[in-house]
Simulated assay, not measured.
Amino acid sequence: MLSYRILLSLAAPGLALLLLRDRPFARERLGLSGTSNGPGRVQQPTIWLHGASNGELASARPLIERLLARRPDLCIVATSNSRTGRALVESWALPRVSARLAPYDYRWALRLFIGRWQPRALILIESELWPNRIFEMARRDRPVLLLGARLSARSAARWQRMPALD
């Protein structure tokens, strides 16, 4: 995990350049956009659902619709690594569903995102796992569900050695 964090730190200047180029979405990537739990505001229960792109998010739509139907008080923040995935979720115009670009896998950005949205769980629908997302949710004792992902036996064994995944 330490080597991952070191590599992520080394990539920071390149990501800063990407943010300058992608200015309209920079706040989302840094975990700064979306709901906020200000004083006196009642927070509805929220689930964070992440799909890498269009295919994963399209496959998650029936799940999203079923969750919303079963829990009229539930909100979902659906994140994607791509703008097209974000646009796809927006095009559904589902009530209580917010579409965002996924925050970068920096702990501070994730803490801001999680602090703003207060998700009770994270549902991942992709095979690329972002360690800090998982660890930040686990640190708060919030479940992480991995649906529809394909992992090799070797990758699965590595992930099982992570202490936060007990």
Rank of each mutant, 00 (worst) to 15 (best):
Ala58Gln: 14
Ala58Thr: 11
Ser59Thr: 12
Ser59Ile: 08
Arg61Ile: 13
Pro62Ala: 05
Leu63Tyr: 03
Ile64Ser: 05
Ile64Gly: 04
Glu65Cys: 10
Arg66Met: 10
Arg66Phe: 09
Leu68Val: 12
Arg71Lys: 15
Pro72Asp: 05
Asp73Thr: 08
Asp73Val: 03
Leu74Trp: 04
Leu74Gln: 01
Cys75Glu: 14
Cys75Pro: 08
Val77Tyr: 12
Ala78Gln: 03
Thr79Gly: 00
Ser80His: 01
Ser80Pro: 02
Thr84Lys: 12
Thr84Phe: 10
Arg86Gln: 07
Ala87Lys: 11
Leu88Gln: 08
Val89Gln: 05
Val89Ala: 10
Glu90Trp: 04
Ser91Arg: 04
Ser91Glu: 05
Trp92Ile: 04
Trp92Ala: 05
Leu94Val: 06
Pro95Ser: 11
Arg96Gly: 12
Arg96Phe: 05
Arg96Ala: 11
Val97Ser: 03
Arg100Thr: 02
Leu101Trp: 08
Leu101Val: 08
Leu101Lys: 02
Ala102Val: 13
Ala102Met: 14
Ala102Asn: 14
Tyr104Lys: 07
Tyr104Asp: 13
Tyr104Ser: 12
Asp105His: 08
Asp105Arg: 12
Asp105Asn: 15
Tyr106Glu: 03
Arg107Val: 06
Arg107Phe: 03
Trp108Tyr: 07
Ala109Phe: 11
Arg111Trp: 06
Arg111Ser: 13
Phe113Val: 02
Phe113Asn: 01
Phe113Ser: 00
Ile114His: 03
Trp117Arg: 08
Trp117Val: 01
Trp117Gly: 02
Gln118Gly: 02
Gln118Pro: 02
Gln118Arg: 14
Ala121Tyr: 10
Leu122Met: 10
Ile123Arg: 10
Ile123Met: 10
Ile123Ala: 09
Leu124Ser: 01
Leu124Phe: 02
Glu126Pro: 03
Ser127Cys: 03
Ser127Gln: 07
Ser127Pro: 08
Glu128Leu: 11
Leu129Pro: 14
Leu129Gln: 14
Trp130Arg: 06
Trp130Val: 00
Asn132Ala: 07
Arg133Gly: 03
Arg133Asp: 08
Ile134Arg: 00
Ile134Asp: 00
Phe135Val: 08
Glu136Thr: 10
Glu136Ile: 04
Met137Gly: 00
Ala138Arg: 07
Arg139Cys: 03
Arg139Trp: 05
Arg139Met: 02
Pro143Lys: 05
Pro143Ile: 06
Val144Phe: 04
Leu145Glu: 00
Leu145Arg: 00
Leu145His: 06
Leu146Gln: 02
Leu146Phe: 02
